[in-house]
Simulated assay, not measured.
Amino acid sequence: MYIPFDELPQHARLWIYQASRPLTEAEQSEIKPLLERFATEWSSHGKGLKASARLLYSQFLVLANNESETSASGCSIDKSVHFVKELEQRFSISFFDRTQLAFLKEGEVEQVSLSDLKSKVAAGEIKQDTLYFDTLVNTYGELQASWPRPAGASWLAKYF
């Protein structure tokens, strides 16, 4: 069952996928109904999930489920991964490259390779207060309260 994204409860579980590039307006227009359809049909052991999905900052695909209603099982999570992989093929984009980190700089999403992170920190290009899109955020409440969050308040704190 589809729930509008803005109506998710604070404890709703999230899965965030970072695209390898910003999606064009045309791609976003094409993807949005696919996301709604997936969230509507997403189920766990035959029971419909109370789910939602949204694109954020033209570069992040967020799937969500109200876990207090029905928990996502391993099979339903596999279905979501399969769906995201289908989007990758259809739009010639990657959503699974964990070697790219995304920061918000001057209102734009900037991707930085994990291998370049130390040198960017040393050069002062990335600081503790640089906003980081932490794809490890687990709940809708966290997303609303602190996403993007200062890099120093994320798992990247060890680099400062």
Rank of each mutant, 00 (worst) to 15 (best):
P150W: 12
N65I: 10
G46I: 06
C75F: 08
Q144R: 14
E25K: 13
S146K: 09
G141F: 00
S154G: 02
V109Y: 10
F133L: 11
D97V: 01
E110W: 09
K79F: 01
L14C: 12
D116I: 05
L63K: 03
A39D: 09
N65M: 01
P9C: 13
D6A: 15
G141W: 01
Q10G: 03
F103Y: 10
L34H: 10
E69G: 15
H11C: 02
E30V: 02
R98D: 08
Q10K: 13
K118Q: 12
Q18I: 04
A19Y: 00
E142K: 02
F83Q: 00
Q10I: 06
V121S: 08
G107L: 10
A153K: 04
K50H: 11
G141N: 02
I93F: 00
L136P: 04
G74F: 12
Q100R: 11
R13N: 15
K120I: 01
T135F: 00
K118H: 13
D97W: 06
E106N: 13
E67A: 14
S58L: 04
A72Q: 06
Y159R: 11
S43H: 14
S44R: 10
A145K: 03
I3A: 01
R54E: 13
S119H: 06
F83W: 08
I16A: 14
F5L: 07
D6R: 15
Q28F: 12
W155G: 02
F38D: 14
L117F: 11
F83T: 08
N138T: 15
W42L: 02
R54S: 03
F38M: 05
A102K: 05
P150K: 05
S154I: 04
S94H: 09
S119W: 00
Y132S: 02
I31F: 09
R54C: 07
I3P: 03
L56T: 02
R149F: 09
E142D: 15
G141T: 03
I77R: 07
R21S: 02
K120V: 01
K50E: 06
L156W: 12
A157E: 11
L136C: 07
S115F: 07
F160C: 00
S113F: 08
A102D: 09
P22N: 07
E69Q: 14
Q128L: 08
K32F: 13
S73K: 10
W155V: 01
T99H: 03
L35S: 04
F5S: 03
T24E: 08
L8Y: 03
W155C: 02
E88T: 04
K47R: 10
Q144H: 15
V84S: 05
F5Q: 11
S92D: 06
G124I: 15
S29C: 05
F95Q: 02
Q100E: 10
K85A: 12
Y140F: 13
V109M: 09
E106D: 14
G124D: 13
T130E: 09
E67N: 05
V84D: 07
L114W: 03
S73M: 01
P4N: 13
M1P: 01
